[in-house]
Design a protein around this nucleic acid. Structure first.
Ligand code: SF4
Ligand code: SF4
Lengths: 147, 147
DNA sequence: CAGATTTAAGACTCTTTTGTCTTAATATAA
DNA sequence: TTATATTAAGACAAAAGAGTCTTAAATCTG
């Protein structure tokens, strides 16, 4: 799977937060309940996003987390970078180091086309788009329970 | 990184074996040396490929591993499936279950385009193509040591 | 047969990822 | 002020991935 689970959870939570009507703070407990993610685990992940200034947080009653800036200014890549580290597309298929057009493995040319598309998708896709799409078209952010 | 390290090693070793001039058995020791992969670890990985009938092996002097069928009949997908399990492209970005066009997450449409391309690349790319390209164009199968 | 070579099998260790839990800090509200 | 709600921080545990090592089995060579 492309991204770590940690990263998946972070993205899903961020979309959820971005989709809130009122821009109040959303308690992590509510997010974890809605998305069916362990509360404590999600807390750690969102702390990371808070440290990276993608979310802001507030403690105490009526506290929670909220986007640190407008949803259209937060890309998927921002979140992935914050959680999984710099370039999740740097290494790839064969996991070789120092990949470049100059010293390629035999898959490089074909793979690079796909990789570029992925990178572009992650850069262009913002939380605003994802949140709007999610609520408008009733997309899901959780696993299905029914077979 | 898309694939597990185990899978990377398996692919690289398979390309190396496919690229051998004589279709004799290639000792794993030689592969591990050339590709700079731990001998014991590689042995375990190639055992897997042997069990899955992608390689055949022979013990004793002049033993080693060889392709179990013609190189143009072994696709990358065959190798990936044998090592990392069925469909490495089944789940994806958000890691949700039961993904389909009917019950999508908000990234589904965009992502599916890319995923299809990946799947097709893995299905179309055979060891024959990779081995030929590697030897003809001097592509590399190993990490670079020089900075 | 004896010795060398090479894969097979599986136990074992180390590291990373994933997940849980406890305690502390901060804020609100009664 | 006291109780309650909530994030912060970090220790800890469990599971999976990556890698090592030892012993056994098969095969060839002399
Ligand atoms: S496809 Fe390109 S970037 Fe990926 S491992 Fe090969 S050389 Fe490196
Ligand atoms: S993009 Fe499609 S296949 Fe991937 S997690 Fe979303 S719904 Fe599932």
């Amino acid at each position: 799977m492309m991204l770590s689970k940690t990263c998946d959870y972070g993205i899903r939570a961020a979309i959820f937060v971005a989709g809130r009507k009122d821009q109040q703070f959303t308690p992590i407990g509510e997010i974890s309940e809605q998305l069916n993610i362990s509360f404590h685990f999600l807390t750690k992940i969102l702390q990371r996003l808070t440290q990276e200034s993608i979310l802001k947080s507030y403690r105490g009653s009526n506290g929670g987390v909220a986007l640190a800036r407008a949803a259209h200014l937060i890309s998927l890549k921002d979140i992935v970078s914050a959680i999984d580290g710099d370039n999740p597309f740097g290494a790839c298929l064969l996991g070789l180091n120092q990949c470049s057009d100059h010293n390629p493995c035999p898959l490089h040319e074909q793979w690079n086309l796909i990789r570029k598309k992925m990178e572009s998708l992650f850069e262009k896709t913002t939380l605003a788009k994802l949140a709007t799409a999610t609520t408008a078209k009733r997309f899901r952010l959780t696993d299905l329970t029914e077979p």
